[in-house]
Design a protein around this nucleic acid. Structure first.
Length: 466
RNA sequence: GCUCCCAUCGUCUAGUGGCCUAGGACACCGCCCUCUCAAGGCGGGAACACGAGUUCGAACCUCGUUGGGAGCGCCA
């Protein structure tokens, strides 16, 4: 049987970092084993699901490059099917109608808690065989076995055993006429032929209930793998308030999709000492069975390091489109300036994200906005600087406009004036950028462009005298 | 309260009874390189939560303690 995995988010918000890792693992597991990866939108919660969230999730998946082989399948379009399956269960005496109000259920729970027991449904309607009747409180409950236990071999957790006595008769159809999660997942996973259910840790407790439903339906139970949580830097649960959790926020912060994927794949999984994984390597080496059991913390510093690694090693041309997206977003028209790929080469050793790169790139796309007074005083206002600027003015007007010839011009000036490189580079740097910090001076000049460079030298000469 | 899960440097992890005076990576510190800032190179500090067992021998096996987490919905 071919392997089929699925990622099944509920569209109540953006795709967050934990969901992205789950999606990645599902995708990798399917890819490695030559199977398929499906996407399903679990939107049966009519109150909280939104179309905007569906779009946000799809966009994020696309940006990450996690393409689904099937779907998205929407649960809201499968209502008839859920009804049909629930009817089967009803007819077979494996489910029943119940009519308690929500307040009654709540009271039941409090009473159990007060007695030191687990809050559960008391099974009042379990054996009553009440017919279907119009009632705002009508729900369908699953007749969970009361004896024995459910055992399954979780691919990451190992053997899990659950006493049926711990489980109660869960609602499978709500009074609003929609199925509940635990029921819809099982029906969908059966219908979609899912063989490997890979999902967050928070679902382990649901698994025994779901297995009982599989049994009641006479269906084959899939394999399960429950992934540990991702915590924030302090070891707390990731929260929207204090951490950025949305995948697209990481895009906005200037991270590369591949860097994020590489970071995520190593969070809870490893292959010896290897840190860097191409997509192909991830697919080849990843195995869901090697995933750790313990929760892990999200470390932005390491993500940043990986991001810079890819900034430094990827082909600048292939990086350019994402950089252009950031430039545009920052209000910079990159067509009125140096080629983005050239800017990437000049700045990638100096920044960890595209967001920082955009800020440092501004000097080449707009006139100098402000001058650092200290820099001007220190590097421009002396005779040596004026001589350097004058020499540079003359030679740069003539030389071939590439970093290498520009570099030669600078060495020529150094030789002629008998000055060290520092005495040449700093005045020029201040002239080009208004500050004393920039990439290597030859690249900095090159990216400014000849016309603008000469103009900036003229401006600097004025300030040098001022 | 009940059920279940987890536990190696600050962080991510390697490690599956002797190869461990515990390895790698991020971060941190120092030195080198150097036109600034970086990047890079070299080096350094830094961990098996605790306590009992089992064993000739435990980071690895067992039990307990402590600490963390998840779930107990007509949310997913």
């Amino acid at each position: 049987m071919t392997v089929r995995t699925r990622f099944a988010p509920s569209p109540t918000g953006f795709l967050h970092i934990g969901g992205a890792r789950t999606a990645l693992y599902c995708w990798l597991e399917a890819r490695r084993r030559g199977g398929q990866f499906a996407l399903r939108i679990e939107d049966t919660d009519r109150e909280r699901s939104t179309e905007a969230a569906v779009k946000a999730i799809l966009d994020a998946m696309h940006w990450l490059g996690l393409a689904a082989d099937e779907g998205p399948v929407y649960q809201t379009q499968r209502l008839e099917r859920y009804k049909q399956v629930a009817d089967e269960l009803l007819k077979a005496g494996k489910a029943y109608y119940a009519y308690e109000s929500k307040d009654e259920i709540e009271a039941m729970r409090e009473a159990a808690l007060a007695k030191g027991e687990k809050p559960r449904y008391n099974g009042y309607y379990r054996e009553r065989n009440e017919p279907c009747r119009d009632d705002p409180n009508r729900v369908i409950r699953f007749k969970n076995p009361q004896e024995g236990s459910v055992v399954f071999e979780d691919k990451v957790k190992g053997r899990v055993e659950w006493a049926n006595a711990e489980l109660d008769d869960l609602v499978i159809f709500r009074s609003d006429g929609w199925p509940t999660y635990n029921f819809a997942v099982v029906v969908d996973d059966i219908d979609m032929g899912i063989t490997e259910v890979i999902r967050g840790d928070d679902h382990v407790n649901n698994t025994p209930r779901q297995i009982n439903i599989y049994h009641a339906l006479g269906a084959k139970v899939p394999e399960f793998a429950h992934l540990p949580m991702i915590l924030d830097q302090e070891g707390k649960k990731l929260s929207k308030r204090t951490n950025s959790v949305s995948v697209m926020e990481y895009r906005e912060a200037g991270f590369l999709p591949h860097a994020l994927l590489n970071y995520l794949v190593r969070l809870g999984w490893s292959h010896g000492d290897q840190e860097i994984f191409s997509r192909e390597e991830m697919i080849r080496l990843f195995d869901i069975a090697d995933v750790n059991k313990a929760a892990s913390r999200f470390d932005t510093e390491k993500l940043a390091w990986l991001n810079q690694h890819y900034l430094k090693t990827d082909d600048p041309q292939s990086l350019a489109p994402e950089f252009e997206w950031h430039l545009t977003r920052a209000g910079i028209d990159y067509r009125q300036g140096p080629a983005p790929a050239d800017v990437i080469v000049a700045l990638r050793d100096r920044v960890q994200t595209f967001k920082e790169m955009v800020e440092k790139a501004r000097v080449w796309y707009a006139p100098i906005a402000e001058w650092d007074d200290k820099a001007v005083a220190k590097h421009l206002q002396n005779d040596g600087a004026v001589a350097v600027l004058n020499e540079a003015r003359a030679l740069l007007a003539e030389c071939a406009w590439q970093p290498e010839p520009i570099h030669q011009v600078i060495e020529q000036i150094a030789a002629k004036l008998e000055l060290g490189m520092g005495k040449i580079a700093q005045p020029l740097r201040v002239a080009m950028t208004g500050t004393q910090v920039s990439p290597s001076i030859d690249h900095t000049i090159y990216l400014v462009g000849r016309g603008e460079a000469l103009k900036r030298i003229d401006d600097a000469l004025v300030r040098a005298k001022g």
